[in-house]
Design a protein around this nucleic acid. Sequence first.
DNA 1: ATCACCTGTGGGAGCGCTCCCACAGTACCT
DNA 2: AGGTACTGTGGGAGCGCTCCCACAGGTGAT
Lengths: 351, 351
Amino acid sequence: MASHGARGRSGGRPTLEEVAARAGVGRGTVSRVINGSPRVSDATRAAVEAAVAELGYVPNTAARALAANRTDAIALVVPEPETRFFAEPYFSDMLKGVGAELSDTEMQLLLIFAGSDKERRRLAQYLAAHRVDGVLLVSVHADDPLPDLLAQLEIPAVISGPRSAAETLTSVDSDNYGGARSAVEHLLGRGRGKIAHITGRLDVYGAQRRVDGYRDALGDAGHQVDERLIEAGDFTEEGGARAMTMLLERCPDLDAVFAASDVTAAGARQALREAGRRIPDDVALVGYDDSAIARHMDPPLTSVRQPIEEMGRRMIDLLLSEIADRRPAVSRGLEKRQMVLATELVTRASS
Amino acid sequence: MASHGARGRSGGRPTLEEVAARAGVGRGTVSRVINGSPRVSDATRAAVEAAVAELGYVPNTAARALAANRTDAIALVVPEPETRFFAEPYFSDMLKGVGAELSDTEMQLLLIFAGSDKERRRLAQYLAAHRVDGVLLVSVHADDPLPDLLAQLEIPAVISGPRSAAETLTSVDSDNYGGARSAVEHLLGRGRGKIAHITGRLDVYGAQRRVDGYRDALGDAGHQVDERLIEAGDFTEEGGARAMTMLLERCPDLDAVFAASDVTAAGARQALREAGRRIPDDVALVGYDDSAIARHMDPPLTSVRQPIEEMGRRMIDLLLSEIADRRPAVSRGLEKRQMVLATELVTRASS
DNA sequence: ATCACCTGTGGGAGCGCTCCCACAGTACCT
DNA sequence: AGGTACTGTGGGAGCGCTCCCACAGGTGAT
């Protein structure tokens, strides 16, 4: 009831027109002020700002979007079935970075799930309707058609984790190669000689890069890479346990394992226990992600930490600049659009 | 280039007007069809649908929002500094539920962080501008002004975790009282007699309810509640360790601990180890949340699982029905608007 | 004085929808 | 025959902005 009374005054929230009347200026001038145009005299600007404050004016997004043909919104597209992405710390950390970087802009963040076919069709409609100014893509598989759709629709997009070395989209990634190297070098430095590697899903580019880092770290240290010490995992605990079992069978004398994720390491630990190997006395173990699991494992797990929050921030930076570039029709050309951020090895009792 | 050719035809994406022309009907009729109005003949409907399909028409959200004064968007407001919420499994599970329930509606999901003051001011503006049709509120403290703001603006809202027994907002919660009871009853059933409780932050209503459940479970089993066996924690690992240390000092003969969260239990486990107590032989341990930590703890932790994904789904259900209720001006009155979902005890080796 | 060219400003047109009034057509009463 | 009451449809008005053209008034060159 109270609200009805309040609305009665002028029929709801103040409009730009009412602000103009109050400030004694035209509609165009108010628009210029709230959009930060420099072509307004100081006196006028002050008058408009006062009127805005007095009326508590807030621009109507829908009207603005309709008139200006932009949405001031970006979408974070999440491939839901990919539970790996939802796992701690990835998703929450990235969201923190994204949120932080977005907080001093006017941009909205839309969360879109693209797991099921139905959801994907809906997403395609969204994009076709240009309901967002830009898209953040995470955890995309090599054969996903989404990036091409985005390119075709000319929608600015940034991908986290490029699909391959030849990624065409702007991308942000952590240094999987360097991270793997640092893990292996750490183990070598601890005097370990027979270091095994349980890989991630090899259709994920980052997992491949970790294998590359593993190989090169060994090679550069003068070790011959023993293919029998490499076993494919899939980022899951079961996969880690399975791989570890096979490795122990093949090479009972291994003295260290570098796993492509903490969850994988947890599975490996299980298998090692069951085989009666002590960690780190018999076998040193290193994981990847520095998740809660690593901190709480027994013994606590040495792990490679990715700057995920920072990645989220950088993705927003790049996306916003792509959006800005596109607005004045002429793109600013080919800058360096593949960003790689350093990782950090967090040493704990497992190695 | 291809896309430019396609756009050239009529200057961009097809509009409702173009669909109308193509189908040989008026604008209003097309609007009725795409909004599912029953007042359209079957023949006309078919013609319009054909035209929509041929042109690949997708309604312009901005125009619709402007004309209809609704946004078809809801906001999930996240109090960011509250890292507890971001922790696994809470956030990701809830998001899964929310996403699933939203996937067969036209609603968009906006993620809004309301951590810093700046972000909160921005949020207030959002809400004042009615840029969303409804709000999902999670992890709200007793003294948060946000719920009142929402009520004042008459924006439909659903809260997860009521602020008190007298919560006025529609809420969805898990049965904290029952969950705690089941944990304590389980320990009693295992023959434990001196069961301690490390609480959560007591300014969180759910934490209070867990204390209530703990007390009543003991009382109903004919045990006198020993106040010295209750120690306040804060949902953190350090808090759990601190509380455990104090409990051991005060009551060295305790034989079980019910912790208000898995993280708290992890801290308690640390303190128990350092005091030389074996789990579960000397002291049984039960946590709350059934997080990754519980599964990977050594020994694996018995824990109370909350149906968080289900909570997300129910929140959306309730919110959508509130939004729908509000549309035809007359509210459908006071149904049961406080929903409580059952928990489940997951038994593992720690108890 | 005339012209050119700035800066600052007002306001019309139009973005693509929804809402609602008007009205033709049909059906069924009195 | 005239009334009343539907159903289905067309299209004007208007949502609150941005864009852009027009124009007033100032400044400095010719």
